[in-house]
Design a protein around this nucleic acid. Sequence first.
DNA 1: TATAGTCATAGATAATTATCTATGGTTTAG
DNA 2: CTAAACCATAGATAATTATCTATGACTATA
Lengths: 319, 319
Amino acid sequence: MKVRQLTFRLLQVYADVVRTGSLTATANRLHLTQPTVSQQLKRLREIVGEPIVRHEEGRLVPTEVGQALYQLSQDLLSRADVFSQYVEEYNSGGRGHFSIGLVNTAQYVLPRLLGPFSQANPQVDITVEIGNRQQMLNRFERHEDDLYVFSHPPLDDDVLAAPFLSNPLVVVGPEASHWADVNDLTMEALKDQRFLLREPGSATRHTFDAWLYSAGIELRSTQQIASNEAIRLAVASGMGLAVLSRHVVADAPKGIQELPLQGFPLKSRWHFVVRRERRLPPAAYRFLSFVQGSLAQAFEEPEGGLAVAELLQALKVER
Amino acid sequence: MKVRQLTFRLLQVYADVVRTGSLTATANRLHLTQPTVSQQLKRLREIVGEPIVRHEEGRLVPTEVGQALYQLSQDLLSRADVFSQYVEEYNSGGRGHFSIGLVNTAQYVLPRLLGPFSQANPQVDITVEIGNRQQMLNRFERHEDDLYVFSHPPLDDDVLAAPFLSNPLVVVGPEASHWADVNDLTMEALKDQRFLLREPGSATRHTFDAWLYSAGIELRSTQQIASNEAIRLAVASGMGLAVLSRHVVADAPKGIQELPLQGFPLKSRWHFVVRRERRLPPAAYRFLSFVQGSLAQAFEEPEGGLAVAELLQALKVER
DNA sequence: TATAGTCATAGATAATTATCTATGGTTTAG
DNA sequence: CTAAACCATAGATAATTATCTATGACTATA
């Protein structure tokens, strides 16, 4: 058999001929003329190199080889169909894979979106990458993930960013700290305190530093600690104060409390970030759509279903 | 995916691209130019409706969908190959089915040919039909079998017949019959004996009747018995004489013996008979080839490896 | 034995496919 | 930074395919 010349169309037609036992019937069913079917059949026979049907009592019945060919056709066609369905599902985003890169702090809130999405789309498999701002920027540069969450999106023409959630940064002290009761508390009053800060690559640190700079304040004593969790514990044990995302505090308030500092919370927002050029996997697209629809329920203070919708729109145009 | 437009050629090319990770390499391997492969790939992508490869570190690697497509390709191609091999085997006659219709008497000798053939070709499955001449003629008329064995082939332009074995008809009597010792025994001397004969539709009967007629002899007493075996037993028990194929006697000589009658044995021969128009299944063709090669070993008195060879030749021309 | 139904073939055409050469853009490796 | 390698696209062409209409042959049935 000349496999090379074989087409699925021929197999479709042939399978129908075997089922109906009649060229005319197949022609009608497939909206073709009878001679067309006749010729298709002839060509298939030439490809196979062996007669595949014979006349028997006015019907066309497959020969021995034809019978085997029929089974083959069924088999191949149904496999192709399964694949076809798979592609459709993939395309709708209901199936497949995407990866999302999260800045550390965002891991406190994203599960509230990822969890329900995952539940609703069990066939979608998500890789979550987590790191500080710098690490994420590196991944972003290397195009390693499909989707990112930054509070300060990298600026680039190629980058699309949609804010979706406010990320207020607050100053925290140990539980029952006397600072909590001070009125009109200012940073001036705290600048001699020891501050426990994330490493310079972190977004929280970056924002705080910028604010300090613009306020013309220099801290006396700082200590660098690499994880939000470690900072929380340190603050709770009285080692100092810290600046954290309010979401971190809300997530695990044990032993710490927010201080009512003037000028705080510092405003910042999380953004979904994608590269315009990169084709977003349908599953990621579906995730963003899902997010857009569920922001209001998931958070008190979403920042932009609208912005996410615009991002989706922009991506749709790219397709 | 537009299954309808899918071809095996595209899958072949695609599979190779995935393996090599390079259009140029595939182009060389398949003796095409690089732009050709590029275009094939493009078309396949359009058929699938989704990107199937992407560039990664200078190599082409399948996307998620592409990976699934590659697996599909492998699967489909290998299935088509298996079928292709099957067709080849079928074509060589090493596999498949044929049916052969035997006149009763021939069943005593055909096993000597069918047995070894079957052993040598275990994938060939043979249907053996047996009946008397008339029944076989009916089957022949209805084109029910691929191949027949007759001693007197039906005459028709459409019929090809090749004698392959002599089938001497002899007169038999009970063991130790006194007729056995008579010199120059003639039918005249026996005509008053009771003859146990096959029914008129049988070839043996037909031949014997014809001989009697041409010799101008009429028998006094006959009795019709439908099977050679029953006749043998009847003769052995002294109920009369009979005309049987010498092969029957040779096969089971118990209780009977051949009488040395003048003019006997009557000559007759078995023929393989096929319809010229009918396409002989390759397995049947292979059987005839096999027979042609083994006649000399199987029988002392073959009648025509030559004739069988000619028949094969004639069929070959028809193909 | 007409008649209707079914299949095969011929002839024609538009569409699609398979390929090639030439060329320009990107990426990779020195 | 340049050369080499590699891929994409354009343009051209020959071959193949998909179809159709018209017609002829065969077959079963009224």
